[in-house]
Write a protein that binds this DNA or RNA. Structure first.
Lengths: 217, 217
DNA sequence: GTCTATAGGTAGATAGAC
DNA sequence: GTCTATCTACCTATAGAC
């Protein structure tokens, strides 16, 4: 009851403890991303997340007090990735180069981890009620930056006058489609799984259309 | 045990019965669309669907034996609507006219009933496991028809050579985005709800970009 | 920090009176 | 064809031993 400051007193967190914590949290978060993405919030079972993470269920609750808390925690890494893709859009870069690089990066993100990419779709389709104020601020900030880039390009007469926000929506939608609507894409293309060649075709189609339109002059 | 053919024997369905059945099924299906769209399959509660339909829960089970059966039944009307929009794309119509009309129709569908439009997104994001063979065939058929239209336009040198399937994805994605990602659209545009003017801007942005691209010549 | 056992609550589905 | 009462199963969350 007295020496709470000595090393061997009731639990002053050791470096080893901290490492275990971090590693477990990472394992749980990764498992949660997969399960929530595949099943949605209500469809996901904490027991399944625990199984995927190779931990007992109670251990999950030890690190995340509630299902909601764990769910909310899965968004941050995803937003971070999208952010890094958006930073490709820079006013100094030529539109044709920057737009191609952005679309390519975004398609790659969806391909690398389609389940994680769907996490967000799942949440937004439900109305986005679990997106925190920080998440919303994050989105508002990164999109605002990209919108400014589009405006700079317009001011420099490098791209036509167009509503930059709706233009961003279009890029977002076109790339996200290959992750969110994967079953439909597969059905229409009549394949079981998309190959690198399919993603190349998608890239060329999107970039070609966005840059030059489809009409013959 | 003998006269099963006479009118007053054990339950030969009367016209009145049939009407009641049809009306109740319609009410239940409409309520189910709304609730499944907002909450997803697992999040939706039969009790809530019953409340929205203004019927007791057991009555829902009288018409639909399981939750899955009711869920699957909600897709057909939606696919029918999308189908009618796709039929706007006709080889005889000029691309500029047909594409604008299609995008406008698709945006309107999403605006008229965003919840219903999200039903499909919800299901597809989950992997589309509840889409019946008939649903898939339906999608394959309507998309195949539109793809042929694009090919006809290419053959007639009316549009540039482009992969018609990926082009269709792009149109689908760009229009669907305003329904599926509504919370994000609202956040970026800093409004609570989209107005007719916003949909007009979306229409012009999408059509302008698709037809002419964004690059200044 | 780990994990078994279980409490507490809720949802899908059904029995059976009307 | 309608609807109340209820069964059964399962899931989140926690208590408490180790």
């Amino acid at each position: 009851m007295r020496d709470t400051s000595t090393p061997r007193s009731p639990k002053p967190e050791t470096p080893a403890d901290r490492e275990i914590r971090a590693a477990n949290k990472r394992k749980i978060l990764k498992a949660a991303s997969e399960v929530f993405a595949a099943k949605g919030f209500d469809g996901a079972r904490i027991a399944e997340i625990a199984t995927v993470a190779e931990l007992p269920k109670a251990n999950v609750y030890y690190y995340y007090a509630t299902k909601e808390e764990l769910y909310s925690a899965t968004f941050a890494p995803l937003l971070e990735e999208w952010d890094s893709a958006l930073r490709i859009l820079k006013a100094e870069t030529e539109p044709a180069v920057a737009l191609r690089a952005y679309v390519e990066a975004k398609l790659k993100l969806g391909r690398k981890n389609p389940l994680e990419a769907r996490l967000f779709a799942n949440e937004v389709v439900r109305g986005g009620t679990f997106l925190s104020a920080a998440d919303r601020a994050h989105i508002a900030n990164s999109t605002a930056a990209s919108i400014e880039v589009f405006e700079a390009w317009m001011a420099a007469k490098k791209i036509r006058k167009i509503d930059p926000r709706h233009f961003l929506f279009m890029l977002w939608a076109a790339t996200q489609f290959y992750a969110d609507y994967e079953p439909i894409v597969n059905a229409v293309l009549q394949v079981k799984k998309l190959t690198a060649a399919h993603y190349d075709q998608a890239l060329e189609s999107i970039v070609g259309t966005v840059l030059g339109g489809v009409l013959v002059d």
